[in-house]
Amino acid sequence: MPHDHEGQRVSRRKLIAGISSLGLGGLLAACAPDAAPAISSTGAAVTPRATTAKDLTSLFDQAGTCTLSPATTAGPFYFDADRIRSDIREDRQGVRLRVAIKVQDSETCEPLRDAVVEIWHCDAAGSYSGAESRASGGGSAGAPPDDSADLEPLDDERYLRGAQVTNADGIVEFTTIWPGWYQGRTIHIHAMVHFTDARVLTTQVMFDEALNTEVLAQAPYTDRPDRDTRNDDDGIYRDDMLLKVTKDDDGYLGVIVFAADSDRDGA
């Protein structure tokens, strides 16, 4: 299988189109041991199924609740970043964070296999790739007036953005850094789930404030003191958006379950 840390230049839309035309079974069969990489209808080799560093299924023992995950707008800094990869850090400095997400159907509680999960967030300085001139560590100043509209990227940076396809257990795993903060928002990560050709969930995840304080006391986060918004003051925060976070070697591991309506367009 091709190594994905550099991020294959395959757009999420093209990946889905390739899966649709090739047949998902044939595409995933090509990812079996010793099999040749699958080729999408675009002619690009793709790695559809997420792989994890270790078995994470036990972390989701409490995933049997079928409560629909809270939906939010995508915010002003979303765009299709053309990055199918698990490690989204690139050159960004910060405390290492592994994020494991299990996607399940909100009606059946069954794992949602072959769903595309995207995440994106700001760096330790509060900037978003593709929108540094607008974000500038200071929130959404200069962002499009409709924050549900996809952004037209303003630069070639693509750090802290990536997509993975859920495995048979409905799980994807990303390696990133603990996000920084920007004016008016608590610390958060954006996420979007696509199933077939629809956006079935757009949401955000947050962190326990004791852990935020612990992480932000370290470099490079200390270069931006005086954070102005915490969970209790954030207009989007909900308790069920909290990652379950544990220590993980020199960083942290955060897990969460997304329950999505696979028959509904959640754009």
Rank of each mutant, 00 (worst) to 15 (best):
L27H: 02
E173M: 01
P111I: 00
F207P: 15
L243G: 03
S69C: 11
G184H: 01
A198F: 12
D232E: 15
I256R: 08
L24Y: 13
D261F: 08
I19S: 10
R264C: 14
V10P: 00
S20P: 01
T213V: 12
M241S: 08
M206I: 02
G251L: 03
H3D: 11
Q8F: 12
D197I: 07
P145L: 01
P220D: 05
G139K: 08
T229W: 06
A17W: 07
A168N: 11
Y159M: 02
S127C: 04
F174C: 00
E110H: 12
G94K: 09
Y237P: 03
V215C: 06
Q62R: 14
A45W: 10
L112T: 10
A149C: 09
D61Y: 14
D61S: 15
S136Q: 07
D223H: 04
E90F: 04
W120N: 07
A217N: 11
S262C: 03
A38T: 15
E152D: 11
R230E: 07
G170Q: 01
T108A: 00
D147V: 15
S40P: 10
P111S: 01
V165L: 09
A141V: 15
P145W: 05
K54C: 07
D80H: 02
D249Y: 14
Q183M: 04
L243Q: 05
L68E: 15
I189N: 04
I177C: 07
A191Q: 10
C66F: 02
F195M: 00
Q8V: 10
V165T: 12
T52R: 13
S262H: 07
E110D: 09
P111V: 04
S86G: 15
Q8P: 02
V245C: 13
R113T: 10
D261T: 02
R227H: 12
I171Q: 00
R227F: 09
D234I: 06
V10R: 00
Q218R: 05
E157C: 06
Q62V: 01
Q93A: 06
F195D: 00
D263H: 10
A143Q: 02
I39Q: 05
A163V: 14
A260I: 11
V95H: 01
E107S: 14
R98K: 14
A36S: 10
D226H: 11
L253C: 13
Y159C: 03
T176K: 01
P2S: 07
G130N: 09
S11C: 10
R199T: 05
V165R: 00
D4P: 07
V95D: 07
I236W: 04
L56K: 14
L160Q: 13
D146N: 02
T67F: 13
H5Q: 12
G26W: 12
G142C: 11
Q62E: 08
S41E: 05
A260N: 09
Q204E: 08
V257A: 00
P144S: 11
T67L: 12
D155T: 10
L56S: 08
T42H: 01
R224E: 04
V99M: 10
L56T: 03
M192T: 09
R12D: 15
A44H: 04
H188V: 04
D123M: 04
R9C: 06
E110N: 06
S41V: 11
Q218I: 03
D34R: 05
S148I: 07
E132G: 08
Y252M: 03
R264N: 08
V245M: 05
Y221A: 01
N212C: 13
T202Y: 07
P145Q: 01
A135V: 11
K247N: 09
A63D: 14
S133Y: 02
